[in-house]
Amino acid sequence: MGPQVVFRSRVLPYLLVAPQLAVTLIFFFWPAAQGLRQSFLREDAFGLSTEFVGFENYATVLADPTYLEAFGRSLAMGALVAAFSMGLALLFATMADRVVRGAHVYKTLLVWPYAVAPALAGVLWFLMFNPTIGVVGYTLNRAGISWNHYLDGDQAFLLVVLAASWKEISYDFVFFLAGLQSIPRGVIEAAAIDGAGPARRFWTIVFPLLAPTSFFLLVVNIVYAFFETFAVIHATTQGGPGGATETLVYKVFNDGFIGLDFGSSAAQSAILMVIVSLLTVAQFRLLDRRAEA
C-alpha cells in the first residue's frame, strides 16, 4: 500500500487525517455505538427506566412475522428492481454501442434520470398512476384493468418498484455501455467472419464477457433497492396500504421514530448492518474479478 517514497513528519499526518477522523468519530462511531447499546436495552414507554435485556430485542425482531415479511418484501423488491432496470439498461446499451449517428445524443438523453431524487421520482410515478387523475391509472381503469394503488397493496408495491427501476436504468446503462465498449472489436469481427449472426454473437460472446459487470450491478442494484427505495416509499405510500410496501429500512425508521420502540429499531439496524457488510464484501470481491476480466 502506497508508493516507495514517503515523507517524514511526526505531526503532519495526524493533522491531515484529523478532520475526517473527527467527523467519523462524532457522527459515525458515536451514533453507531449508541445504537448498538440500545439494541441490548429495553426502555419503558415513558423513557424513565431502561433495563439490559441481552439479545431479547433481536429474538423478538427475528420472531416477528411482520419483520420476516418485510425481509421477503425487500428481497423481492431488490430482485424486481434489478431485473427491470438491468434488462432495459442492457437492451439500450447494446443498441447505443452499435449506433453510429447520434450516439452522444442518445447517451445524454438516457443518463439524466440518475439525477432525479428518488423521492421526486416516486411522486411523479404516483401521480402518473393516480386512478382518477393520472394518465396511466385512468387509462388502465378505462380499459377494464382495475387500478388503485391507494387500496391494492400489490399495485402499490409494483408502483414503488417501477419508480425505483426507472431511476436506476441510467446507472446500469452507464456501466453496461462501458462494459460493452471494453470488449475487443477483433473478437466480434472474428465471430462475424465465421458466420455468426448478431443474435448469436450477443449470446455466445458479448453476454458472457459482460458477466462480471452484470454481477457487480446486481449487487449494487440490490443495495440500492434496500436503501434508496426508502425515499420513494416514505414520500408516497408510507409503507401502506396495509404494510404492503413496508421494507426493512422503512421499518427501522418507522419503529424508531414513529413507534418509539428504540430497542427494536436498533436491533433491526444492527441486523441490516450485517446484511450490508456481506453485500459490501461481495461487491469488493466482484470488483476484483471485474478488474481482472
Binding site: F27, V249, M273, T280
Partner: peptide
C-alpha cells in the same frame, strides 16, 4: 457498512 438510513435514530439523538 452503515448508510445514514440505518443509523438514523441514534444519529438524530447525537
Amino acid at each position: 457498512m452503515l448508510p445514514v438510513e440505518v443509523r438514523i435514530v441514534p444519529t438524530f439523538q447525537v
